[in-house]
Write a protein that binds this DNA or RNA. Structure first.
Lengths: 216, 216
DNA sequence: GTGACTTTTTATACATGTATAGAAAGTAAC
DNA sequence: GTTACTTTCTATACATGTATAAAAAGTCAC
């Protein structure tokens, strides 16, 4: 154990993560600011930046810790490759949906944390079992990931919109549609809010699997 | 023409949008701050907030203006419904990719601006032509939209990562993969960067169309 | 004109992420 | 011990979006 040189650290990455968890658990995501976190661990805000690169990385580390706590379920027994992909994607989306700050992480990085990597592993493996080349299997995974990330983002934006009662641009747009140029939308207009509040993730994933994997 | 009451406005929404365009054209998106914009139109920052709700709405209005300038292409002659959907989705993604601030807009709202609505119109119409019910056609559009938004976000995040030469969390994660638990990823590891830099949007859209529309 | 009312603009303030510069606190060589 | 070097921490500062309160500038009824 070689003695380390330099000023001995007062705080560790673990301290930071623990404190961050505490703050989020007790007061929610929006209470997690760098200043607040610094106070919580007993330092100055900028000291945190020696342990994490920026706030986005902090969130990614939190996500990783969270992922470590999610058990890796066994793929359903006797399931075909297609069903394995669907099951993994659905589990991935569900796990991510539970993370309140997930949107920030999605914006920052397109890949999951180390301990969440079994999702891509499972999806890619199942795709290869179904007959895809490894390259095609990676493509399939990325396509599924893009779809999943987009769906999560959109859902979160919709939820924010619902909380916020200020009148939205969106509403105005849909009120006066040109029925000549946009007949379908005009016809659907009144039902738009209802139609677009349905959960279509599964439907999309199944369509993707049908379209990506070779016909059995 | 009823005379308006209240203090007469010094600036209009049009002034703001014009100035915003000028700033973006001349100095790029990151130069567009509320303070800068206020200086440009000759007011105080907060005066802008009487004409736009917040910066996100401003960007949405800019997107709408931009969309007005993109001509609505005729669907390819003699194309089947599936090809029409693909063409519309590809055009939508391409148009949005050209808007540098698109990521902010995607985060704020899941729907496009008024003058960009022909994309969903075209997709929904083609889906109905293919035999879907209007409800299923809306679902199909939303699924395609989620996929598209996710892909654009991921691409933009990847581009930012490339510009930034600071070492990324992502890199470290992929260096030490547990080959026992994650054999596929470990095998692909060295090629991951290359494999995930490919453009798979078309492939995904075609898979979605295959999976969503009834077999012809 | 005067006072009530409305709309728009201004001034000020705050919270946030983080850049930058340098101080503090240790080890290692001599 | 003194000096050089390294790592971590602190202080200060800035740019940003936007909340809040009040001021300004008009119309209208009388």
């Amino acid at each position: 154990m070689p003695a380390r040189t330099g000023r001995p650290p007062k705080i560790s990455k673990t301290d930071i993560l623990t404190a961050a968890h505490r703050v989020i658990d007790e007061e929610g995501t929006q209470a997690l600011t760098m200043r607040r976190l610094a106070r919580e661990v007993g330092t100055t805000p900028m000291a945190l930046y020696h342990h994490v690169r920026d706030k986005d990385e902090l969130l990614l580390l939190l996500l990783d810790e969270y992922a470590a706590g999610v058990p890796r379920p066994e793929p359903p027994a006797g399931a075909g490759p297609g069903e394995r992909v669907v099951a993994a994607a659905v589990a991935m989306r569900e796990a991510l949906t539970r993370v309140p700050w997930i949107v920030e992480v999605l914006r920052a990085d397109d890949l999951m944390s180390a301990r969440a990597l079994w999702y891509p592993e499972e999806i890619i493996d199942a795709a290869v079992q179904a007959g895809l080349t490894p390259e095609d299997a990676v493509d399939a995974y990325r396509i599924i990931w893009h779809y999943t990330a987009g769906e999560i983002s959109a859902r979160s934006a919709a939820a924010r919109r619902r909380e916020d009662d200020r009148p939205t641009h969106r509403g105005r747009v849909f009120e006066d549609l040109d029925a000549t140029r946009l007949p379908r939308l005009a016809a659907l207009g009144p039902r738009w809010e209802e139609l677009t509040s349905r959960d279509t993730y599964d439907k999309g994933i199944r369509a993707l699997v049908r379209g990506l994997l070779p016909r059995p």
